[in-house]
């Protein structure tokens, strides 16, 4: 497979993100992290700095640890018994999120997440979006209405669902459900949005819509996206990290990773020779 085709195709569509973006401030600092599921080590000495208001893509073959790392960033791995960060630190704005003094609930309000399979609650669209706000005790009707509209517009879903806000979120199509989940995540105004293969269960047209949405969101949020789809990483991201066997192999500007990888494994993967 010729990897240049998608990349050039996308770069012809818009200005290259790498050249356009200035060097951003570091938001998330992953510092020599080792991570274990019980006795098996899933991440080996990961060292990575994620910039603010950029899209960072994690790529790599299945089981390489990219989703694990993503779920470390909002401590979703805490929900799995026997997991631990054995060494190193993950700092967001200089604060070690694994420090005992950190309130994981507060952390997750700041670091939102969109999952691989769309998972709207079995509630109305309106209730799905206001769920996070109600958790924070916000119940002013006009306030909530405003956030619902803003979030749905932000997720490019408003025009499609504005007439049926009070019908079940499960009645939407797959792509709409995933955008509803994005709207739900941005409703609480996090700083970071983690996306765990958000398009892997969507058809090509829905995928395009979500990708376009990511381009709009990057102006307001820092986005970390895990993807299996290399063209997607090439199209959407500013920076790309390639993982293999729990190790970070290469981390660089997306253009550099795809056009001119420094590492032979990276080169082999992005050119489709394995993975």
């Amino acid at each position: 497979m010729d990897i240049k085709t998608p990349f050039t195709a996308s770069s012809s569509g818009r200005s290259s993100p790498v050249s356009a973006a200035p060097v951003g401030a570091i938001l998330i600092d992953i510092d020599h992290v080792d991570f274990y599921y019980g006795a098996s080590q899933a991440l080996h000495d990961i060292n990575l700095k994620i910039e603010e208001k950029k899209v960072t893509a994690f790529i790599g073959p299945s089981g390489c640890g990219k989703s694990t790392l993503l779920r470390c960033l909002n401590r979703m791995n805490d929900l799995i018994d026997g997991t631990r960060v054995a060494k190193g630190q993950i700092k967001i704005r200089g604060i070690d999120i694994y420090d005992p003094s950190v309130d994981v609930i507060e952390l997750r309000k700041r670091v939102g997440m969109v999952f691989q399979k769309s998972n709207p609650f079995p509630k109305s669209i309106y209730e799905n979006i206001t769920y996070g706000l109600r958790l924070q005790g916000r119940s002013n009707k006009s306030d909530l209405d405003a956030v619902v509209e803003k979030s749905l517009r932000g997720a490019a879903l408003w025009d499609e669902v504005k007439d049926r806000l009070h019908t079940s979120g499960l009645g939407l199509s797959g792509g709409q459900q995933q955008r509803l989940c994005i709207a739900r995540a941005i409703a609480v105004e996090p700083e970071v949005i983690l996306m765990d293969e958000p398009c892997s269960a969507l058809d090509p047209i829905a995928t395009v819509k979500v990708e376009e949405l990511i381009q709009e969101l990057r102006t307001k949020f820092t986005i970390v996206i895990v993807t299996h789809n290399m063209q997607q990483a090439a199209r959407c991201s500013d920076k790309t990290a390639f993982f293999y066997m729990g190790k970070l192999i290469e981390f660089a500007d997306t253009r550099a990773i795809f056009m001119n990888p420094a590492n032979a494994q990276t080169e082999a993967y992005v050119s489709g020779r394995f993975g």
């Binding site: 909002n74 979703m76 929900l79 609930i105 507060e106 997750r108 309000k109 939102g112 997440m113 999952f115 998972n119 709207p120 609650f121 769920y131 996070g132 958790l135 924070q136 989940c181 739900r184 995540a185 609480v188």
Partner: peptide, 8 residues
Amino acid sequence: EASFALGA
């Protein structure tokens, strides 16, 4: 998971 991720 979705609920936890929203800070519940």
